[in-house]
Simulated scan of single mutants.
Amino acid sequence: MIRVLIADDEPMIRAGVRAVLATAPDIDVVAEAADGHDAVELVHRHRPAVAVLDIRMPGTNGIEAAAEIRRTVPETGVVMLTTFGEDDYILQALGGGAAGFLIKSGEPEELIAGVRAVADGAAYLSPKVAARVVAHLSATGAGALAGRRTAARERVGALTARERDVLAFLGSGLSNGQIARRLHLVEGTVKAHVSSILARLGVDNRAAAAVVAHEAGIVAPTQPPLDR
């Protein structure tokens, strides 16, 4: 079972997230919090595989909570829930090590897929979030969209052909095991490729690498339901 904590200051949102996750037989919501401070405390108490955090919460917000969770309980992966207009917050959370980013108004299946991906050690950006991050970067003095795409393609061009294949699936939210099965490789080989990809791209985590994959336009299409 994938043990999950939910944190959101709106009870109705928490109830909705819990109801969606309850439809997945392999996911168990073990705790709920109304703010970031309580989320951190409950993560320490319950040690969930995944913490699903709202970005904006009173007191300790989701970004601060995510950073503290990653620092003190690194085995817990963090999925951020966002709404439109929070692109700056998404970039902060990305830099803080959050592994998943989902839009509250997205499809329920995305929430389940994101939790499963992060529990498996993968990064998961919903397509809408990825598109917004790329567009936001291009509109904030970080370079025009065409320029960022060119730069991303140049960075990806430094990878080997196999590393590009791995990055394409990584950008789709697949775990090392799932990538290994897609490419008929040993999981340890995929892990080594991912480490090399992060180093060559100059990024700190899989979520940041996924952004580069989206910028370069090499994300593999999500195929039939991702195997567990």
Rank of each mutant, 00 (worst) to 15 (best):
D38P: 14
R206F: 12
A139H: 07
A208T: 05
V29R: 03
T189H: 12
I112F: 04
R182F: 12
Y89T: 02
M1P: 15
Q223M: 13
R162Q: 09
V115A: 04
V20H: 00
Q92W: 04
L145H: 06
G114S: 09
K191L: 15
H46Y: 14
L102T: 00
E163G: 11
D88C: 09
Y124P: 10
R45P: 12
L170G: 04
E64D: 11
I63E: 00
H37W: 11
R206E: 10
R153M: 14
R162I: 02
L102A: 03
G95I: 05
A15M: 13
V20R: 00
R132W: 05
A135H: 08
L159K: 09
V40P: 13
G100C: 11
G171W: 10
L167C: 09
A119H: 06
I69D: 02
V219I: 01
H46C: 10
E163R: 13
V118K: 02
L145V: 04
F169W: 15
A22E: 14
A65K: 01
S105W: 03
H184R: 14
E107I: 08
A199I: 07
V115W: 04
V219D: 00
I218A: 04
I63R: 00
H193Q: 13
A66V: 07
G188C: 06
R70M: 15
V211E: 01
A161I: 06
I55N: 00
L94V: 01
S175H: 09
G100V: 06
L201Y: 02
K104I: 04
R181M: 12
L170N: 02
A117Q: 08
S126C: 08
A117D: 09
L91N: 00
V4H: 03
A113W: 05
L145W: 04
G157A: 10
L21P: 08
A180H: 02
H214V: 09
I112C: 08
D38H: 13
P25F: 03
V133R: 01
D9G: 09
E32L: 15
I27S: 04
L81G: 01
L42V: 05
A39M: 11
E187S: 10
Y89S: 14
P11Y: 05
G36Q: 06
P221I: 03
D8H: 05
L5Y: 02
H193S: 08
N205R: 11
A33R: 01
A208I: 06
L174C: 11
T23A: 12
A113M: 14
A113G: 09
R228D: 14
A161R: 12
L125I: 02
G97C: 08
R148K: 07
V29L: 07
G97Q: 06
V166Q: 05
I179G: 05
V190K: 04
A158W: 08
P108F: 04
V212N: 03
G188D: 10
V212I: 12
R116E: 07
V29G: 03
G106M: 07
E32M: 15
D87K: 11
P58M: 01
L42I: 03
L185P: 10
G171M: 13
A19K: 05
T150V: 14
T160Q: 10
R153W: 11
L170P: 10
M80F: 04
L159F: 06
T83S: 15
T72Y: 07
V30L: 08
E109A: 13
G36N: 07
A130N: 03
R228T: 12
K128G: 12
L183P: 07
D87I: 13
A22M: 12
N176F: 13
P108L: 11
G114Q: 08
R153Q: 12
R45H: 11
D120P: 14
S138R: 07
